[in-house]
Amino acid sequence: MTGHAECKLRTELPKIFKVSRVAIEAKGHKSIFLSGTLDSKPGQFIMVWLPGVEEKPMAVSEVGAEEFAFCYHTLGPFTQACDKLKPGDKIGIRGPYGNGFGIREHAMVVGGGVGMSSVSTLIDALSNPLIINGARDKEHLLYLERFKGKQMTVCTDDGSAGKKEFTTDALKEALDANPNIRMVYTCGPELMMKKVVELCNERMVDCEASVERYMKCGFGVCGNCLIDDRIICTEGPVFSGLRLKEMQEFGTFARLKTGKKVPLSEYYGKA
């Protein structure tokens, strides 16, 4: 019975970091860089506390020797408060949390919109992945500079940059052209991920997707981020395509802040 000894040693308090710099990544997208180190695996996330405002989960989007970053799309009050951060400001970080991606080579990475930030450290960790980077238009595309020199297919909904097609169409073409692909990673709008998962399952290609839900604790207790009977913050956010195929709520339902189960379209409207 070792329970007590473990408990007394374990804490999950926000650690305070100073903002080192702010970078504009695309229209409405910024990265907040923090001075210090973070021992995280690709696909993990952190709980970001703006003292006096709120705390929200954010993907770790860059990890360096002296700083790390999270990237966000300005939408609600929390991200609007993030927009006001400047170098020297102190914010709290809990984590990293979550399981992260399992690293395998001969891989493709499919990112849609701000979902690219959740797979960006994975791209850094893979030796030579094929990347599909999609957004609604040219102005909203992330990391064109950062991943210059890598094998990246760009697609936009309006054709203002790269091909005018969906990431899932680009994936189909890429899988046809590269039968040696063994693994597909994805993060982006859930309906996009659902299609990616279906495509991969049909072709017997392994696949992992990073799923998002409203989160409160980050460590598997509050139950707000449940998808079916799985706990996203500790048992996810990354799930295999085969596991996701079994989940009835994937691509269909999510829970609001109140825990009410609603269709995904309503979730994205309100949460």
Binding site: T11, M47, V53, E55, R94, K216, C217, K257
Partner: peptide
Amino acid sequence: ERKGHPGPNMFVIDG
């Protein structure tokens, strides 16, 4: 329906 309090909502201290 209740949204609950603003975060941080939960963390772990010594013990």
